[in-house]
């Protein structure tokens, strides 16, 4: 009987710790947050709303239209690049390949790479780049779109991209941004740093295990 009690108490403590600890092992939610008061059943309820990635429409390397709906129910990583980038992009995508290899079997995971040079990086150019990078299937989409649309959505990912400078170079951040199923920003990682990308892979596993992600419909 005593044993049963001990077990019972242990269970309560364990569960208590787990719910308290939810924040301990969970990833932070980044981006702006706003306190909103809504009326639910006639009662005013105050809630915190986090910034989410807004609606978008781009085309991937297969010529398929990709919108925010294509990423519903998926955890994904986003970055910005261009195929002729002589500086940081090859390093970023060498590291991103590790993320791709780790999660390519997961149907609820995606990588999206937005080109910031849509004039040169047409859909066939993106397909060729994907082939040479050795990526197949639908895990990793290379997205083409209007320059204005890409530059606008980069701000939602807290990224800065800009037009060519006088030397003819595009200046852009090299971060990998982790987005959860609720389309909130959960992490930002320096894509050129292998150690940061290793952390990203670990964080994706942590995120996948969060109840909010498992139970998301």
């Amino acid at each position: 009987m005593n044993k049963l009690w001990t077990g019972f108490i242990a269970l309560i403590i364990f569960n208590g710790c787990k719910s308290n600890n939810g924040g301990g092992t969970a990833l932070p939610i980044l981006g702006n947050k706003a306190t909103v008061t809504k009326k639910v059943n006639g009662k005013a309820v105050t809630d915190t709303e986090y910034a989410t990635i807004p609606a978008f429409k781009f085309v991937n390397q297969y010529g398929d239209t990709i919108t925010q709906k294509s990423l519903d129910g998926k955890i994904y990583v986003a970055d910005f690049f261009f195929t002729t980038c002589p500086s940081i992009c090859p390093k970023m995508h060498a590291n991103m390949l590790n993320v791709y290899k780790e999660f390519k079997a997961d149907a609820n995971f995606r990588i999206i790479s937005h080109t910031i040079d849509p004039k040169y990086d047409t859909v066939p150019v993106l397909k060729r780049y994907a082939d040479k990078l050795g990526i197949t299937g639908n895990t990793w989409w290379l997205l083409h779109g209007e320059k204005g649309d890409t530059y606008k959505i980069s701000k939602s990912y807290l990224q800065s991209v800009s037009e060519k400078n006088p030397k003819g170079e595009y200046i852009h951040d090299g971060f990998f941004i982790l987005i959860d199923k609720q389309k909130r920003i959960r992490g930002s990682y320096e894509g050129t740093d292998p150690a940061e990308v290793t952390k990203l892979i670990a964080d994706i596993k942590t995120l996948k295990a969060e109840p909010d992600q498992i139970n998301f419909k």
């Binding site: 995508h93 040479k132 990078l133 050795g134």
Partner: peptide, 8 residues
Amino acid sequence: GQGLQILI
């Protein structure tokens, strides 16, 4: 000096 797949 490993390059990158068949891109580099």
